[in-house]
Every structure is written in C-alpha cells, then in structure tokens.
Design a protein around this nucleic acid. Structure first.
Length: 234
DNA sequence: AATCCGGGGCT
DNA sequence: AGCCCAGGATT
C-alpha cells in the first residue's frame, strides 16, 4: 500500500484534505436524488443499471415506475421478460433489462446460500461476488457494495475517472485501458476508512464530476478541492 | 484492444 | 456534426 502510494506520488495529507473538502461540499451541494434515500440493494441496483450511459434526468421517472411495477427481486423474477422490457422501453441498452431479469431469477432460485450466507440479503455485499452476476461489472459491483451495504469499496465511472485524474494524475488518460488500472488504484488509495464515510465519499466524487468537474466546461472557480488539484494550480 | 449497444442532451 | 452520459458483454 505504501508502495502504491509512493508510486502514484500521493501525499497522505493531500488525500485527507481532498476527502474532507469533497465530502463537506457534498453535504451542502448534492442534488436530492431519490435513490440516495434508500439502502434497499434491489432499488439501488436498478438505479445503477438504469444510469449506465444514461442521464439522471431521464432515469428519474423510469426508476419510480419500474419499482412500482416490480417492487422486489421476487416480483421481478415472477415477471415475464416481455413485461420487463416493456417497463424499460425508451431507455435503450436493453441488454441491461434482460440481464437484470436473469439476475433476479438467479438469486431468487439459488438464494443467499450461493453467497455462503443463508440469513443474509438476496444480493451479496462483496464486490467480487456481485461482479459474477449478469450485467454487473466492476463499477456497478462497487456501487452496490457502498451505496446499498455501506461497504468500504472503491468505484470508478467516467465521472470519478475524470475527477481523480484531474486532481491527482493529470497525465493519465481515462480512455486508455492501461491507465484505468492506475485510476482504480488512486480511487482505492483515497478512500476513507469507514463504510459510512465511503458512501458519502463515492457519491461526492460522482456529484463533483456531474456538477463541477464536468467533461466540457469545468467550473474550477466553484470547486471545493481546487487548492489540492494538480490541474487547477496553473 | 476494439466494437457494439439507444436515445437524448449539450456545445 | 460530434461528443457526452452513474458501463458491460462480446469478439
């Protein structure tokens, strides 16, 4: 870990400042998004799948309607694929809906025993186990682990990749798959200790990328971490 | 490593 | 017209 930090030239003091400023900003400026009020793993999972390559504004209505129509994993598993696709109609990337449906039948059939925990929830809390389910990749596994189970897990999406590279490693290029591994290492190295703080931290990383550290027109003047940012001290 | 998958919004 | 958006599966 110390080697990882030094290889990336990440100063612990800098990391602490970044995290505390980031989370303080989030508490004051975060949007009020409905999936941030729940810890239901199924509801969180649906939101994460819908949000893949899809803007928040377009997901809002779909998410509410989908959960009304299919309130639980069991309800979803009982539905026909046709019904699930109908509820998804207009969102695009329909493989997400088919995978979600398959996933629901898999976990309902095998139950928590498949994760080695008879009494636990239907969905596993560990990223490595979530990762095995259809439609769940590295990002979504981390997202469900932290946002539903409040685990200390890292996650990297396009927002997080952009924020972390600009702040800590401006020379990395998020689109290069080789650099992706380094970005995940930075995400891991800058994570808070506890799961509760990690929930806020990860939400805040994505929120900063969505509202301030945006892809096209950056708003560095409004950025809470510009004093520790390697891209803004020019 | 590169392509494909949808549709809408932004510049 | 081109790029971007809470990615993942397939080749």
């Amino acid at each position: 870990m110390a080697t990882a930090l030094s290889a990336l030239r990440l100063d612990p003091q800098r990391i602490r400042t970044f995290g505390s400023k980031l989370r303080a900003w989030y508490r004051r400026n975060a949007r009020d998004l409905p999936w941030r009020h729940t810890r239901d793993p199924y509801a969180i999972l649906v939101s994460e799948l819908m949000l893949q390559q899809t803007q928040v504004s377009r997901v809002l209505d779909y998410w509410t309607r989908f959960l009304t129509r299919f309130p639980t994993l069991h309800a979803l598993a009982d539905a026909k694929e046709r019904q699930v696709l109908d509820a998804w109609a207009g969102l695009g990337y329909y493989a997400r809906a088919r995978n979600l449906h398959k996933l629901s039948r898999a976990v309902v059939r095998e139950g928590p025993r498949a994760w080695g925990d008879d009494t636990g929830p239907l969905l596993p809390a560990e990223p490595a186990k979530l990762r095995r389910l259809p439609g769940i990749g590295a990002y979504t596994a981390g997202a469900v682990a932290t946002f539903a189970f409040e685990r200390r897990a890292s996650l990297v999406d396009t927002n997080v990749a952009r924020v972390l590279t600009r702040v800590f490693a401006p020379r990395l290029q998020p689109k290069r798959s080789r650099d992706q591994k380094r970005i995940w290492a930075i995400a891991e190295a800058t994570l808070p200790r506890t799961g509760k703080a990690t929930w806020t931290h990860n939400q805040a990383l994505m929120e900063l990328g969505a509202l301030v550290c945006t892809a096209r027109v950056k708003r560095c003047d409004a950025c809470p971490v510009r004093m520790v940012c390697r891209s803004s001290d020019a």
